[in-house]
Each structure stands twice: as C-alpha cells, then as structure tokens.
Design a binder for these strands. Structure first.
Lengths: 225, 225
DNA sequence: ACTACCATACTTGTATGGTAGTATGGAACA
DNA sequence: TGTTCCATACTACCATACAAGTATGGTAGT
C-alpha cells in the first residue's frame, strides 16, 4: 500500500553534506574559503552535530581541510591530483571500452544509440546542461554494459577533483559537435568490435576534454596549492 | 627547541577509526557483525561522538553499513566490488609500469634494487610479514618514480576491499619465490625500457596474486553478499 | 617606539541527554 | 496452536553544554 513515495526528507547530515558539496564543486565556495561549524549550523538551521559529520565526509573526499582548533577551509586545488585523476580516468575508460568491444549486451547498445539521438536533439536546442547529462550517461552506459558500475562510481569520485568547477566545463562547452562525433565513432567501434579504434578515439576524447590547467592557474592563482 | 617529539596522542576519533578499521580488515570483526555506538564508546572509553564520526568515515569507505534507527553492521563482502577492485588495480598498475619504461629516475631504480635484495633476505628468513611490506613497497616505488603517488593512494583504498583479511593473503603466502621472480623481471624491464615485457609480467603478476573468490565464498558463505 | 603579556573571542573536539524509529518477546485472543 | 497487539529495550539521530587549543587586539612595561 506504499504507492505514495516517502517524502525525500533526507537526514539533516545528508542535506548539509549534499549542499556544501555542490557549493564547493560549483566554486560558489571558492578554494580557501573559511567554513565554520557554527556558522554553517546557523545558516542551515541545524545543530553543529550534522554539520560536523558532513565536514568529516568532505574532509575524507579531500574537499575541505580541517585544522584542529583553527578552522575548516575549502581545499585548494592540487594540480598533481587533478592530473592523476585525468590519468586514472583515461586508463580506466580505455580499458573498459576495449572490454566493450569484446562483448556488449545488445540492449545497452540500443541505449547508446538512443542517447546519441538525444544528444543530436540537445545540440540543436543548444541545451548545454542536458548535453552534460547525456555525455555522462553515455560513458556510464558503456561501463554498465561491461558490468563495471563500481569502477564508474570510483571515477565519479575522481571527477570531483577534475571538475572543481564549471570553469573547466565552460572551455569544452563549445566543442559539443566534436565530442558528439567521437561518441558516434565509439558506439560504431563497439558495434564493429573494433577495440583498436575504440581505444584510440577514447584516448583522444579524454585528452581533448581536459583543459590545460596552467591557464586556470594563471587566472586564479590563489585557488591552487 | 622542540627537539622532543610530540606525543602521538591522535584525536579520539582517529584512534577509534584506526582500530575499528584494523579489526574489520583483519576479520577480527567479521562481515555482518553488529556494531553499536554505545557499546563501542564504552569499550574505547570515549563518548559516542567520536565513535559516530568514525562510523561516518567507515561507512563512506564501504566498510560498515549504517541502517538508521536499526543498527550499524560490518559490510558483507561484495564479490562484484572485489572483482572490480582487482580490475582497476590491474589496469592502473599496467599503465604505470608502461610509463616507467619510458622514463624512470635512476635513484628510484636503485631503490627497486635495494628492495629486491631485501626481499631475498626476507625469503631466506621466511619472514612473511616483512615480505608483505616489501612487496607493497616495491609497487609503491614504481608509482613514486612515475610521480603517481595519488594514484597509488587510490589503489590502496581499493585494496581495502581486496584483502578484507589475511585469508586472501594466506593463499598467496607460499608463492613468494614466484612473485619475487616476477618482481625481478619487472625491474629488469624498466631498466631495459621494455614496456611490452613489463606490461605482460605485471598482468600475470596481478592475475596470479588474486585468488579465486568462489573458494572463499564456499567456505564462508555468510561473509558474502 | 617596541616588546611581552594577557584577556577575549574565536575555532574544533568531546560528553551527554533527549527524540523518534525499529526489533523483539510475551500476553491476550481467535 | 496460531495470530495480533503492545510494552519494552534497543538503535541511530540530533541538540546542547562544556573543554581545550589558537588567533588577535589592547595594554602595561621597557
């Protein structure tokens, strides 16, 4: 009889955590910003306890740095970490698409094709936000077809350090048609079981989509370590 | 004038976290065990707060599962997660050793050789514990030489799910001489800049060192999901 | 003018009591 | 015998109070 969905009503900790995370990733809370348990608890209207527990989680993900008895600060961007995140993503995505060329469920292949169709429509509408979602879903579907969803989850936590902002995203925003073409070629390679092509396209795809950090470092030096 | 080292005196949270983690990984707290904030706080002699915060960290690492208002339990071993952890480790270690064959600092190569010498000595002494440490240090040194220490750190957190115990370890214990021989060949391949050999040996090395889970699943079915 | 000191207002760390949801065992009932 | 209900004893969640370390600005002494 529970056809009525429970009210979302996540725990206070979850709410605080999710919102802080969003604000950090969107640079609404820029690197270096001082946080404060008390201040946060007041603005969220909860006690310090759930705020503290959120800080513990964020600290473990490397998004904030807690200095005992001094304060809690949004982490500066660590270029080495960003580069390694890119490295890991490249290696794992290439390995998985090679797997996909060995065996891939037909039904997931259909999902890729549906996704490509949706990408064309979103491009026509210049709906960038939707394109981001579809881009992510496209890659996710490949992992799904290879039964590597845990790997995908790990990659997502890496991405936290890659797109610590829409800054990095904005640079790629204007290359949608290029990225779409690569997606097309990937899907085709999986159909053709052509691992070599798939691997090559994926490598290009991922090296292109990551911008040179040095530019950002010049523009926002105080955001970096 | 601070030539005297500070007493370690980690925070209560850190202490509780580290010990719980150890006990879970060593199967001293087997999968499925019910934990309790209150019980843990009593046994550690601290209040529930640092215990709760430890639980938050452990939950994020997937070592415990918190069911609101029901209890906190040591996570069951997820075979899919274990297999994917193995997969990720293989891909990343192979990618890094290929990098090492392109360029590797002479000084780190010396470290590898010193490590190999120490491995020979430990094998002679049948010092398994030391061999584990040296094995780990060997792989770590390769990552270090490629400036991929963050990647190594990520791998370490994967390993949590791989060796959720010395059970898996024990199986490999008797193959030290084989593993040592592979280490030798890896170091040689790095010296020779022979990426193909290095990649092949590393692949064998990692597929061999991981035991078939199904055996463990048979023996301890209630530890698995 | 400069330095050492110290009160004060922060910060995070820890302890504890109360709240609400959940499992369980026994009693009442069919 | 089998089922339903409910008191009770748990659980994690949250709020609050206190403890302890740190930065800062003012003040007294040199």
């Amino acid at each position: 009889m529970d056809q009525f969905r429970m009210p979302p009503s996540r725990s206070a900790r979850e709410t605080v955590y999710a919102q802080l995370r969003d604000r950090i990733l969107s640079l609404d809370l820029p690197p270096g910003t001082a946080l404060s348990e008390k201040e946060a608890s007041l603005s969220f209207g909860v006690s310090r306890t759930p705020v503290r527990e959120s800080f513990v989680r964020l600290a473990q993900e490397g998004l904030v740095q807690v200095l005992p008895q001094r304060g809690t600060f949004v982490s500066l961007i660590d270029s080495e970490l960003v580069e390694e995140a890119r490295f890991m993503r490249e290696q794992l995505e290439r390995a998985v698409i090679r797997l996909a060329c060995e065996s891939f469920p037909a039904e997931r292949l259909v999902a890729l094709e549906d996704n490509l169709r949706a990408q064309r429509e979103s491009m026509a509408r210049q709906d960038d936000k939707r394109m981001f979602e579809l881009d992510e879903a496209f890659h996710r579907t490949i992992f799904e077809g290879c039964r590597k969803l845990n790997t995908w989850a790990v990659l997502q936590s890496m991405n936290v350090h890659l797109n610590r902002s829409r800054l990095l995203r904005l640079v790629t925003d204007h290359a949608w048609s290029h990225l779409y073409a690569q997606h097309e070629r990937m899907a085709q390679a999986i159909r053709d079981r052509d691992a070599e092509t798939a691997d090559r396209v994926m490598k290009e795809h991922l090296t292109l989509s990551i911008t040179d950090l040095s530019m950002l470092k010049m523009k926002y030096p105080h955001y970096f370590q």
